[in-house]
């Protein structure tokens, strides 16, 4: 199959047929990559929900050069040969993105100072890049009755943006999904219906795929701000998963174990709960070296001076 040519923000790139606009933009890289809060490459059917990655297609293809009438989600729109896309070069796209950032923050508690996700939170990054400095709303924010979903994962429903990633992890990675989205509209809630623990070997990946602080690691809860810990690539022989992880350390102490995420927050491979929650001694691991965080974020500070 021959490659298709697509132009994004005046930069031309050739990609495999069937690639989405978002993947094509990631191939170019840099500032022209649309933010993606719900799309996740390895989760089938993800994307299209958060609407932060909306882009403008000013030319459909060589065959049908008409522009697309509405902004389209770049994560789920497949490129055509000769397509021309505007992302950050379109004021309309930027305006929509600013509005959607506002919608996502409308009921968000903005409790970053006490949120474990702060520093590696995609909603934080999004609001730095696209949010307004002042709030437009005077309404009371929505709250939920907190539920307990087990001793390993902490659920803060008020922070959730309903990306459905954790639901897809449970569907596609674990034997049985015991949680899902209940109710409708802005009362939607990630829940186990009848309160029960989410307990299976791979449930911890829900934490890694969560773009915000709705699902956080209970074993790491309030231990440290993430940017004060130092990430190291490490591995161990594990019969359940690849065993390739990142250890987040303070001095000699392992505070947290996560999977290895690329700059778009996507895991190279999913890891098991054994690696994530049970192996907190340095002797358990072979440390490969410091992990460079490529993401433009506060966690890319990498404080290695003492090592």
């Amino acid at each position: 199959m021959s490659l298709v040519k697509v132009t994004i923000d005046n930069i031309e790139v050739e990609t495999e047929p069937g690639t989405t606009i978002l993947q094509a933009a990631r191939k170019i890289g840099g500032k022209g990559v649309p933010p993606a809060m719900c799309f996740y490459t390895s989760l089938e059917g993800s994307g299209g929900k958060c609407r932060t990655c909306l882009v403008k297609v000013t030319r459909g293809s060589d065959k049908d050069p008409r522009p697309m009438p509405k902004l389209v989600p770049s994560c789920r729109t497949v490129v055509q040969d000769g397509m021309v896309v505007q992302n950050i070069t379109s004021p309309e796209v930027l305006q929509a993105r600013r509005a959607i950032t506002g919608f996502l923050l409308l009921n968000h508690p903005l409790d970053c100072p006490i949120c474990d996700q702060a520093g590696e939170c995609y909603l934080q990054d999004l609001s730095y890049d696209h949010g307004l400095a002042e709030t437009q709303t005077i309404e009371e924010r929505r709250t939920f009755v907190p539920i307990d979903i087990g001793d390993k994962i902490k659920l803060h429903m008020t922070r959730c943006i309903l990306c459905y990633r954790c639901v897809m992890v449970a569907d596609q990675l674990t034997g049985q999904r015991v949680h899902g989205v209940l109710n409708r509209g802005d009362h939607c809630e990630i829940s186990t219906f009848i309160t029960r623990a989410i307990d299976n070997d791979f449930s911890g990946n829900m934490i890694d795929v969560c773009p915000v602080g709705a699902l956080t690691d209970r074993t790491f809860r309030f231990s440290s701000r993430v940017w004060l810990t130092k990430p190291f690539d490490a591995y161990r022989d594990c019969h359940k998963c690849s065993g390739k992880t990142v250890l987040w350390m303070k001095n000699d102490q392992i505070l947290r174990v996560t999977g290895r995420k690329d700059k778009y927050g996507e895991l190279e491979s999913f890891i098991c709960n054994d690696c994530r929650f049970e192996q907190k001694n340095v002797e358990d691991w072979v440390i490969e070296g410091p992990r460079i965080i490529e993401r433009h974020s506060v966690i890319s500070q990498n404080h290695y001076e003492q090592m």
């Binding site: 299209g48 929900k49 958060c50 609407r51 932060t52 509005a99 959607i100 919608f103 996502l104 409308l106 009921n107 709303t137 309404e139 929505r142 943006i161 309903l162 459905y164 989205v181 109710n183 409708r184 509209g185 802005d186 009362h187 939607c188």
Partner: peptide, 22 residues
Amino acid sequence: YHHESCGQCSPCREGTGWMEKI
């Protein structure tokens, strides 16, 4: 519309409730 929004995508989920309140 606030009551009937499915809550899948953010503009409708959050925007309908906001408009109702205003």
